[in-house]
Design a protein around this nucleic acid. Structure first.
Length: 255
DNA sequence: ATGGCTTCATAGTGAAGA
């Protein structure tokens, strides 16, 4: 079973690339973030024509998440339980006995911003929600844009990023608290190239200079870790015309 | 490396992303 995640930074702009990604990799599940589409504007027919089913939760201009899958999604839930968040950042499904949660964790803007407080509060609520999910579904995968680089090696210049949003201690602690639920950063299960990142700033030739951060992650429960065969970043996607600033991340799990 | 893109909502520029 192949699961993938990609922050597309506008599905309207990136739809042809998403369809190409499906054709090339044929993932069983693809989680999307930052679709930036209201639900009545979602390109359902294009995705059905590609042989995928889809569920989505979107809004105008910002945020928006979707899960594409070969098999029919079951037990679809949107948002975080007991949290009335107007921002559309979470959608979850059950596919082939695996609970798949697609998350777009807030950016936070800066550590002095109100949005940073929202991010930390949001992460606390996500943590409680995932704790319950894990009790209900031992086979749990949380894929998405976490907007947190968990370790020094996930940042091109840890000195520069020290204390800044995406790499601040409180954010890293919140990430570690998710891991402490019994989840694993699947990327680090395997030997990986140094300076592996999933996001590069559009400005300043960030990609060409590999000034990136690894902020898109796939966390797996112990039940899934046992059978996880690979985790990789599709870095080449960032070289296409009009790329998203994020690259997709993929895992293969023997189910 | 403190903005130098890119997107969206607009119809000029401004907000937001990370």
């Amino acid at each position: 079973m192949k699961l993938a995640t990609w922050n597309v930074n506008s599905l309207k702009v990136r739809l042809p690339q998403v369809l190409d990604f499906l054709a090339v990799h044929k993932p069983d599940v693809l989680c999307l973030q930052e679709t930036k589409l209201e639900d009545d504007k979602f390109p359902v027919l294009d995705i059905l024509s590609a042989g995928y089913q889809v569920v989505f939760s979107g809004q105008k201009t910002y945020n928006g998440v979707a899960i594409l899958s070969l098999q029919a999604p079951q037990e679809v839930t949107m948002g975080i339980a007991d949290f009335d968040d107007p921002q559309k950042r979470v959608i979850a499904v059950l596919i082939n006995g695996v609970r798949v949660v697609c998350v777009y964790i807030p950016n936070g803007e800066s550590v002095t911003s109100e949005k940073y407080g929202y991010k930390l509060d949001w992460l606390r609520r996500l943590n409680s929600c995932l704790k319950m999910e894990l009790e209900k579904y031992p086979r749990l995968a949380i894929l998405g844009d976490y907007n947190i680089a968990p370790e020094d090696r996930d940042v091109h210049d840890p000195k520069y990023w020290e204390g800044k949003v995406l790499f601040s201690e409180r954010e890293k602690a919140a990430f570690n608290e998710l891991v402490a639920l019994g989840l694993c950063d699947s990327f680090r299960l395997f030997e990986q190239a140094e300076k592996s990142y999933t996001w590069w700033d559009y400005r300043m030739n960030g990609f060409k200079r590999n000034l990136g951060l690894r902020i898109d992650h796939i966390l797996l429960s112990a039940e899934l870790v046992k059978n996880c065969k690979s985790c990789s970043i599709d870095r080449d996607r960032r070289t296409h015309d009009r790329p998203s600033d994020h690259a997709p991340v993929m895992v293969e799990i023997e189910i």
